[in-house]
């Protein structure tokens, strides 16, 4: 190990500067000298950009450094970073570009394992590269995943951007909303203008995902509405619970209630008799 002064470090290439350095290294640890050495190789600073950035901001003028040899520099940097599965979309993109640039100097399987914890990193990034820019932006921002982006390439750019920017929609909501929207577009042959209008209406609703579900599944929504109509008409505020089978798949409905006195039981039996009048409407749903 040797010590390198800032001007000497500044002459090194920064092509390995692929990790997010926005979160700084703990200043107290820096002040105590408790930080790992930089990794350097030939003219490259291979790892330690976060320490270098935080340290120089804290006034350090020289840093411990270890020279590493041979191929596998990126793999060394990833091992030192030790965050398999924890890299942001932007970091993955820069790691991928650098790995391609380094070519045969790096083992793709080992790089893949070090980045994502599995062997699928390069295949995934190839899929990412095939996507249009407005969708990769969504991925970089952490609002979309590659699989969803691939499914919705038929949606107009303006529509995607509007949904991705939709306030109040979680990552999983964005995903479900866009997939449903694309299926509705295909089913109903909708164009950009009408899609945008629909999106605006849905995003202004209290629960946009529930609303788009109803449009995607009109039969189920209609059955649910009919069931709730019967249920509310006959059992609201009666203490009787009427349930339909999941997705209206099954042989019957379920009624349950409890009682503590004979009079209460009589009242509930009376309610059940009235519910019998709505039975035909319920039977129509199964």
């Amino acid at each position: 190990m040797r010590y390198m002064k800032l001007p000497e470090i500044a002459r090194l290439s920064r092509r390995f500067d692929v990790f997010d350095t926005s979160v700084g290294y703990d200043p107290e640890l820096l002040a105590a000298g408790l930080f790992p050495p930089l990794a350097v190789s030939g003219g490259d600073l291979v790892w330690g950009f976060r320490i270098l950035k935080s340290g120089s901001e804290a006034g350090l003028e020289e840093f411990p450094a270890v020279e590493i040899d041979g191929p596998g520099k990126l793999l060394s940097a990833l091992k030192l970073e030790n965050r398999a599965g924890g890299y942001s979309a932007k970091e993955q993109r820069t790691i991928y570009s650098l790995a391609l640039e380094l070519g045969e100097d790096e083992d793709p399987d080992l790089i893949s394992l070090a980045v994502s914890g599995n062997r699928g990193f390069f295949a995934r990034m190839k899929r990412y590269e095939r996507l249009p820019g407005y969708l990769t932006e969504g991925i970089d921002e952490g609002r979309l995943d590659i699989g969803t982006a691939e499914k919705i390439t038929g949606l107009p750019q303006s529509v995607c951007k509007r949904v991705v920017a939709g306030h109040g929609l979680s990552f999983s909501h964005v995903r479900r909303f866009l997939v449903y929207l694309d299926e509705i577009r295909n089913r109903d042959d909708m164009r950009e203008e009408s899609l945008l209008k629909l999106v605006e209406e849905l995003l202004s609703a209290g629960d946009p995902v529930a609303e788009i579900c109803k449009i995607r599944n009109p039969g189920l929504a209609n059955f649910t509405r009919k069931f709730e109509g019967v249920r509310d008409r006959y059992t609201r505020n009666t203490g009787i619970r009427l349930e339909a089978p999941d997705n209206f798949e099954g042989d019957g409905f379920t009624v349950s209630f409890s009682f503590s006195t004979k009079n209460e039981l009589k009242r509930k039996i009376g309610t059940l008799e009235k519910l019998g009048e709505g039975c035909e409407e319920l039977e129509e749903l199964l």
Partner: peptide, 8 residues
């Protein structure tokens, strides 16, 4: 696939 399906 754009028809309506429910999980059984």
């Amino acid at each position: 696939l754009y028809d309506e399906y429910v999980r059984s």
